[in-house]
């Protein structure tokens, strides 16, 4: 099959996710705490390991994606029109997505249980444990997004196509207010995720975004050096 025969248009695909396969990188947890691995003592390191497994048992991972064809890029404006919606992606993301023939729109979550667990810990004066659970849940949510990305890549490869990096509202200068438009393209296949009026996702530990697909695109690591957002949470990850 090649791109001329086309990818399945606007077909919701569920992403199979095994909780045991989701990885938590301890160095990412520590980085969020402004620490290096060498800064973590035995107590903290053991606590992260213990909470990771506790949180893993609470995972309810879900992810869905839909593929749209013919994205239209307005390079000078830094925008893209897809499915009748105009996205203010920014010039940086557009520069990496511009050769896409298709866009996969995805949303995934690790469910609400870890978030509730974290809040309970904080309420019970276990602030450190609560924050670690929160950070671990963020890592799991990124893992869910990675699984969605892999599944999109698998579909692309089956059709002799390549994919780009994934981009999410709120990052790479893409306004978080575009979240509503993104979810409208999922046509109700949102993996149980809702979007608040201020564009936040609930459950909070969810990730949404887009991945470009085409013959002349490639995944190449994030080009943080081209971005002026020095304080981005994802910088250098």
């Amino acid at each position: 099959m090649n791109s001329k025969s086309g990818l399945p248009e606007r077909l919701a695909r569920n992403v199979p996710i095994d909780p045991a396969a989701l990885q938590v990188q301890k160095r990412n947890i520590l980085r969020s705490l402004a620490m290096e691995e060498r800064d973590a003592d035995e107590y903290l390191s053991g606590l992260i390991d213990e909470l990771t497994e506790t949180c893993r048992s609470m995972l309810q991972p879900r992810a869905t994606f839909m593929v749209y064809s013919r994205p239209i890029f307005q390079k000078d404006a830094g925008t893209m029109t897809l499915g009748g919606q105009c996205f203010d992606l920014g010039k940086l993301a557009i520069s990496f997505l511009k050769n896409s023939e298709y866009m996969a729109v995805f949303a995934g979550t690790c469910g609400p249980a870890i978030e509730a667990f974290s809040k309970k810990l904080i309420g019970d004066n276990q602030g450190l444990e609560g924050y670690l659970a929160d950070l671990i849940a963020s890592e799991f949510a990124e893992g869910v997004a990675e699984k969605a990305h892999e599944e999109i890549e698998k579909l692309a490869l089956e059709n002799n196509l390549s994919i780009t990096n994934r981009y999410s509202p709120g990052y790479c200068n893409w306004p978080v207010s575009d979240q509503h438009k993104l979810f409208s393209l999922l046509q109700g296949h949102t993996s149980g995720i809702a979007v608040t009026p201020s564009s936040l996702m609930t459950p909070v530990k969810s990730v949404s975004g887009m991945v470009g697909i085409g013959q002349k695109v490639k995944k190449m690591g994030y080009k943080c050096r081209y971005c002026d957002d020095e304080k981005c949470l994802m910088r250098g990850k």
């Binding site: 705490l33 620490m35 004066n125």
Partner: peptide, 13 residues
């Protein structure tokens, strides 16, 4: 770092 600060906050609470 943040963890030590949080443990101190727990003791304070």
């Amino acid at each position: 770092f943040v963890p030590q600060m949080l443990i101190s906050a727990k003791a304070m609470n």
